[in-house]
Design a binder for these strands. Sequence first.
DNA 1: CGCAATTACTTGACATGTCAATGATATAGG
DNA 2: CCTATATCATTGACATGTCAAGTAATTGCG
Lengths: 163, 163
Amino acid sequence: MPRPAPDAETRAASDDHAAIRLWLRMLATNRLIETRTRRLLQERYGTTLPRFDLMAQLERVPAGLKMNELSKRMMVTGGNVTGITDGLAQEGLVERVDDPDDRRAWLVRLTPAGRRAFARMAREHERWVVEAFGALGVREMSVMAGCLARLKTHVRSLEGRDA
Amino acid sequence: MPRPAPDAETRAASDDHAAIRLWLRMLATNRLIETRTRRLLQERYGTTLPRFDLMAQLERVPAGLKMNELSKRMMVTGGNVTGITDGLAQEGLVERVDDPDDRRAWLVRLTPAGRRAFARMAREHERWVVEAFGALGVREMSVMAGCLARLKTHVRSLEGRDA
DNA sequence: CGCAATTACTTGACATGTCAATGATATAGG
DNA sequence: CCTATATCATTGACATGTCAAGTAATTGCG
């Protein structure tokens, strides 16, 4: 005995509900994986996710990045990058070098020790992620990636409008 | 001229890569939407996402929740809930009531003012989310929700193993 | 009953994160 | 050239977040 098709208003309302529920689930899943990653990084390497993230950005650009560029790539504010860089520099994992093209700016880059430390961590980090996403098949991952790309683009366009 | 099918090792390696890329995209998308939500909450209501989140939990349980339960539902540690509750209480939006069943515990609940304030914010918050997820169709949202559910369950089972 | 182990919450130390203000340097226009 | 404006990085104030230690009350077991 099939239920009658919901009218437009009901459908719209339940779509709205679907959006909220999906968003809450995204938040929860993200927090779960992030918390796990933080915990593992702390336990195995005594480091943190933002520090790992910063090093990952630098690893791709041996010449170094300006604080500025780090801030954009990590999607955090500049003041924050200053603090994390300070910490990593104190541990000898990154170093600030004068930018020859702009005396206001630094180039931040991995030290040899930083490069070694990151290589070790990155291998294990990749295992954790692959393990977590083992729940999904290739096709599902590809569908999700597509949805997320559309979401990202769309939200960015919203930002442009009311910024 | 079709490329030859990749052998098992190549396929595995590119699956791994797919997992990492997907995870990075989840992180980026999440941060984008979260940052937007934070900004809007700040601009329109001078409040923050964690405060909104706590009030949202309380709104569903008029009798109030123990700090304990708030902490579990919000997926954050207890010390954190203490601070956020302190702030909201100072603004008169929530109140701590003695738990009649356990003298160690509080029941935290919305004040009438808190209930009114939340109702106003929630309406607008829902609009923001629906607007953001307008990029996706019903079917896509349902597929994503399913994937996320599987991811969540799987990661939780991993947690159980090495906790 | 009585004591040991748990549980509920708070606190303080620290790591991220935001924002707004500041100082130093670049850059552009007159 | 010189000044107005913009950009780069740091700082300090504050809001979240974690964790571990401390206090108080409950629970469970002998």
